[in-house]
Design a protein around this nucleic acid. Structure first.
Length: 418
DNA sequence: CGGCCTTTGAAGGTT
DNA sequence: AACCTTCAAAGGCCG
């Protein structure tokens, strides 16, 4: 079925789709150009202690306990960010000495961890370099369209204490997490998902443990990144908050722990198990069957009798060649699908996305409402971020644009593998 | 090489 | 208001 298109419709096959992940800072700086123009030149901003915000910090700039030299600095602090930093409870010093009950030769326990510490087994503190906060003050203001939203999580708003997970570095600071002293064994009970940011009005409960997936979709501040290094031994799931350049849903899913799949038919003749294929998802587990098995229909499988003849969109807006292609933000299911796909594909030993999506679709429908709410919250944040970055964008802008499909084999263009 | 398959949800056009 | 279409991701498959 061909779409009706205006006569002057042009296929923009050569145009690379632009996502926020494919944006670079040049693009963002272009937006901010006017603000930069009004900024004083660097040499008019002497910073005490010799710290130059325009230069990478040197070893001497970093206080004891700071993140290792070489980490990136935050790009665009939100308004009020610095005040929020000051309000944030001070990070605790390194782990308490032995006389306070901590024994470096023993793996730390929950009780060893001060409030605000990194997750169990991970070392903590990240402190700003001297003059770093002053340097942040010299950053240009955020774009004019950095408008506050009505409710929920607001990347452009100064963070509140409740927005920050326990153990998070101050908002806007990169964090590097190192293994705790004496922590040489990968934790066996590492949380499937570390806490995320704010509890949203939609029921998002970031502090609760989750049973599905490994990658949280806590929205990070606009333009900021976090780096987490794995503890020695088998790497636990890693938490990579999303950034403006790398929204969460584009980050690779960490290996996640899932329930052992044992839903194979009992008394199966020896050797037949290799013929098993996934046929459905029941009670939280993938169900396997023999190739010709047909799963009982679920509600969504029942064909819908259309009340009306299909209505086709009569025309599309004329594509604006000057505009870059901006993708739609993902909905909650898309985020969930992206998170679950690697593990489902591994369990199914099948890379066929159509088959995988069927299973994930069933998983989604059987997912408790509370867990779905998490992904709805993430999707809301992705939409907010998208709206901030592309306020003029409309979903209809993409209608009828037959863009060249991007094969994601090339690591240079494979943002999902970043 | 390009389109289809397959899923759910959001957005917005159409009736 | 209800309905309908399109598109977001992704990799195998087919013409």
């Amino acid at each position: 079925m061909k779409e009706l298109k205006p006569a002057n419709y042009h296929v923009r096959e050569e145009m690379e789709p632009m996502t926020y992940s494919s944006l670079d800072f040049d693009f963002l700086l272009e937006i901010l150009e006017a603000d930069f123009d009004n900024s004083p030149p660097p040499d008019e901003n002497p910073v005490e202690d010799g710290f130059d915000p325009l230069q990478p910090p040197t070893e001497g700039d970093m206080p004891h306990g700071a993140a290792p030299f070489g980490l990136q600095q935050p790009a665009l602090p939100a308004p009020g960010f610095l005040d929020a930093l000051n309000d944030f409870p001070p990070l605790p010093p390194n782990y308490a000495p032995a006389e306070e009950g901590y024994h470096p030769q023993q793996p730390p326990t929950e009780g060893d961890m001060p409030h605000g510490a990194a997750p169990l087994g991970l070392q903590q503190p990240v402190l700003p370099a001297p003059g770093f906060l002053d340097a942040l003050n010299d950053f240009p203001p955020v774009p004019p369209n950095y408008a506050p939203a009505e409710e929920g999580y607001h990347p452009q708003q100064p963070p509140k204490e409740g927005d920050m997970p326990q153990g998070a570095a101050p908002f806007g600071m990169q964090q590097q997490v190192l293994p705790a002293p004496g922590f040489n064994v990968a934790p066996t009970d590492f949380p499937l998902r570390p806490p995320c940011y704010a509890a949203a009005a939609d029921g998002y409960q970031p502090q609760q443990p989750h049973t599905h997936g490994a990658m949280p979709y806590g929205a990070a501040p606009f333009g900021l990144q976090q780096q987490v290094l794995p503890a020695p031994g088998p790497a636990p799931p890693m938490y990579q908050p999303p950034t403006a350049l790398q929204p969460s849903y584009m980050q690779p899913a960490a290996p996640c722990r899932r329930r052992q799949v044992n839903n194979v038919p009992a008394n199966l003749p020896r050797g037949w198990e290799k013929n098993l294929t996934a046929v459905g998802y029941i009670n939280g587990q993938i169900v396997y069957g023999l190739p010709n098995y047909t799963a009982p229909p679920v509600a969504s499988d029942v064909p819908v009798v259309k009340a009306h003849a299909p209505r086709k969109r009569k025309f599309y807006a004329e594509p604006d060649e000057s505009k870059p292609y901006v993708k739609k933000p993902p909905n909650a299911f898309m985020i969930y699908r992206t998170e679950q796909r690697p593990t489902v594909a591994a369990e199914l030993q099948n890379r066929d996305c159509a088959a995988i999506n069927k299973v994930i679709g069933q998983m989604w429908r059987s997912l408790p409402k509370e867990e779905q709410a998490i992904y709805y919250g993430h999707a809301d944040r992705e939409r907010q971020l998208h709206t901030q970055m592309f306020p003029e964008w409309s979903a209809c802008d993409n209608y009828g644009i037959k863009r060249k499909r991007i094969r994601r084999k090339d690591p240079m263009t494979d943002y999902s593998a970043i």
